[in-house]
Design a protein around this nucleic acid. Structure first.
Lengths: 241, 241
DNA sequence: CGCGATATTGATATAGATCAACTAATGTGG
DNA sequence: CCACATTAGTTGATCTATATCAATATCGCG
């Protein structure tokens, strides 16, 4: 099923077969989007939400100087802009980072299934609040950690999320972000990201090369980034390396 | 009614009388909390949510060095921890900044009224996503603005939110945060906040003194902080000075 | 009155930005 | 398939915003 990865590994995942079929039934056929494409802009009124099947997307806001600040990275199994359903209008931009496969959920149909299945409504609500929890951790990252800690934390979060949907193999995962992108996520310049990655590599914690991240020592990286995964609300807190 | 300020001035505010009465009916009698009191801690399982009637509260996360990072400031009319309803457990701490009056909404009762009134469910959902939108703007503030911009943006947001619930008078509003608190919100030291406030004061934009903020020139402050209020989802975008 | 919390100011240190050059990969049109 | 352009990564030199350390001032309060 397209939605097999939706909330996979998460607390409150308990969806009944009826609920799973209901979600699946509202999705359009999958569509492929090219890499580096802006799909929605701040201010747009949205009438459907995007479910990410494969690839990476991001959400960001533009600063006056033209530089952007990423506020979220979306990975397979995420409902990228489900918050647009209650909000109706977006307060930020959305773009692909890699080529992506997505399916759309029209909002009027969501309303129908939620009125029929209130518990499913709360599960969808839960999934949007998972994003809010990640936003909070992102604030912590920018406000309290130095460059090395920020990058370490970011990589730990991505590793954990991808692991939950089966996209980690041999401690490695696909990583379509450039050093520039990572800088836009962590509030750093690409030059400094480069130096920061070197520090982490030389310390034997993580290697980032060729669009692949390899965790050499997750525990030390997590401790460097003060990463505590409770905010990701996994079923259990053990990674499955 | 206790909930008169709930989503006041906001888009999607359209609650029917039945819905208003339903919310009101689940709330406990108001309770007073002392200032500077931690009311919930990261990891706590929550079975009720807190509606803030008067006073200021904040949400924050603790760093390894003991310093905290604020992730949210809550003002009257806010459902402080409604996200705890779908999430069931908190990923951060909550404390009062000033003396506060609150009322509690038990989660089992929320479930009852939402199953009866699905539209009310979506309005409550909307209100939690408003928090997420403010989180995103907070990320932007920390990642892309300098000290002067961060403080300017923060003060503009607070002004706009308090204005919407009628707590601005003569361009002034109550402000129980110390310079230390403001630093913990903006990722700055209290020393630098002090210097930053002087810059803003000497530029004739805003005065912060005696726990009162007075806007001398909102428009210039907004432009300094790159503040665009669309993310607050007000009914209209005009302030009512 | 005196003590803890808050605010203010000055001197110095430093993490990360900025500027600049160069390399390595990737893609593209002729 | 090559010549050349474009994008991404790397390294060095210098600059600057903010942190840090330290001292003093002020205020509210028991």
């Amino acid at each position: 099923m397209l939605t097999d990865n939706f909330l996979r590994g998460r607390r409150r995942r308990e969806l009944s077969d009826e609920e799973k079929e209901a979600i699946e039934s509202v999705l359009t056929a999958p569509v492929t989007l090219p890499r580096r494409k802006v799909v929605t802009s701040r201010g747009d009124v949205v009438t459907r939400s995007t479910f990410l099947i494969s690839g990476f997307m991001c959400r960001y806001m533009d600063g006056a100087d033209g530089h952007r600040q990423l506020v979220s990275i979306q990975t397979p199994g995420d409902f990228v802009d489900l918050h647009g359903y209650p909000l109706q209008r977006l307060d930020h931009d959305i773009a692909t980072l890699s080529e992506c496969t997505v399916a759309y959920a029209p909002h009027d149909k969501l309303t129908q299934i939620i009125e029929r299945l209130p518990h499913l409504g709360r599960v969808l609500w839960f999934s949007t609040l998972l994003d809010a929890a990640m936003h909070r951790e992102w604030i912590f990252r920018l406000g309290r950690l130095d460059a090395v800690g920020r990058v370490a934390h970011m990589l730990c979060e991505t590793y954990s999320r991808l692991d939950a949907v089966g996209l980690v193999e041999d401690n490695s995962f696909a990583w379509p972000l450039t050093q520039q992108d990572l800088g836009e996520a962590c509030g750093l310049t690409s030059v400094h990201v480069n130096r920061t990655l070197r520090v982490l590599r030389e310390a034997g914690m993580v290697e980032v090369s060729d669009r692949i991240v390899t965790m050499m020592d997750f525990d030390r990286l997590a401790s460097t980034g003060e990463f505590q995964p409770d905010y990701l609300y996994f079923d259990n807190h053990t990674r499955t390396p």
